[in-house]
């Protein structure tokens, strides 16, 4: 990694390739600190962050209950299954032109894209998580006369948590993709808008800095989810690499 960065810097400094095209690590860092210090980036960060959070939290709020219900009730699965499968087969970014017709180029079209991107992986994972619950546990609970609610709360829900988190992590990647594509396509503000603008005006350093912001936010989101997951998973006996 260090070798790569040094090589990049050297090539850029030596004038082998015009820095206009490839920028250089030092330039990227300088641009980054400058724009953080001057505060011009915060507005874009805020817009992108709000889009991401609204869409993602909305997706989780819809997908987890619906996924649990679909995993639990066969009828619901029969009814909603075809829609989920169809939507899963659609690359959601192709719906952008439609969403823009419906919601305009403001923040809400991006929220919708983020939502659509994240909702499917979370839903599918949650649903399959419910199905893979240990059947013996459920049988034992039933034979001791546990109510449906009790079975659900004490067995199904804890057993499904790892699947929900896998879906959430997967969904986070999709949500970020939604922010980028949505803002590249049509927007008035946001980090994706910043990247597109900087690209059009050949400010390569700014483009790289914008891309780095997305990388960082992807890593941070996954790290946060990992931490939550560990908290929920304390009780589970450790297996394999975690032991």
């Amino acid at each position: 990694m260090a070798l790569f960065l040094v090589l990049w810097e050297i090539i850029s400094r030596s004038g082998l390739v015009d820095p206009l095209f490839i920028s250089s690590p030092v330039r990227v860092v300088r641009t980054g600190t400058a724009s953080l210090a001057s505060g011009e980036i915060w507005a874009d960060l805020k817009v992108s962050g709000v889009e991401f959070l609204l869409g993602y939290v909305g997706a989780a709020a819809v997908a987890i209950p619906l996924g649990l219900a679909m995993g639990w009730s066969k009828r619901l699965q029969y009814i909603f299954g075809p829609f989920v499968d169809t939507l899963n087969a659609v690359p959601r970014v192709t719906l952008l032109p439609l969403i823009i017709i419906w919601l305009g180029i403001g923040i809400w079209s991006k929220v919708a894209v983020v939502f659509l991107g994240a909702v499917i992986p979370i839903l599918i994972n949650t649903q399959s998580g419910v199905k893979t619950n240990e059947a013996r546990f459920i049988k034992v609970a039933r034979s001791f006369g546990a109510s449906e609610l009790k079975v659900f709360v004490t067995i199904i829900l804890p057993g499904t948590v790892p699947f929900i988190f896998t879906g959430l992590k997967y969904g986070a990647g999709r949500a970020l993709l939604g922010v980028v594509v949505g803002e590249l396509y049509a927007s008035t503000a946001g980090v994706g808008h910043l990247i597109a603008d900087a690209g059009n005006t050949f400010q390569t350093d700014v483009v790289f800095f914008g891309v780095l912001i997305f990388t960082a936010s992807g890593l941070v989101t996954v790290a946060i989810l990992d931490r939550f997951e560990r908290r929920f998973e304390n009780w589970r006996p450790k297996v394999g690499a975690a032991a």
Binding site: M1, F4, L177, V179, V180, I195, V207
Partner: peptide, 25 residues
């Protein structure tokens, strides 16, 4: 070991964000 950091960094980035760069190049 050499490839891992690139893979995980690239994986965390929505690769579409590189589009403006590729267009410059």
């Amino acid at each position: 070991h050499a490839v891992a950091p690139f893979l995980s960094a690239l994986n965390a980035t929505p690769q579409v964000a590189f589009l403006p760069l590729i267009i410059i190049w």
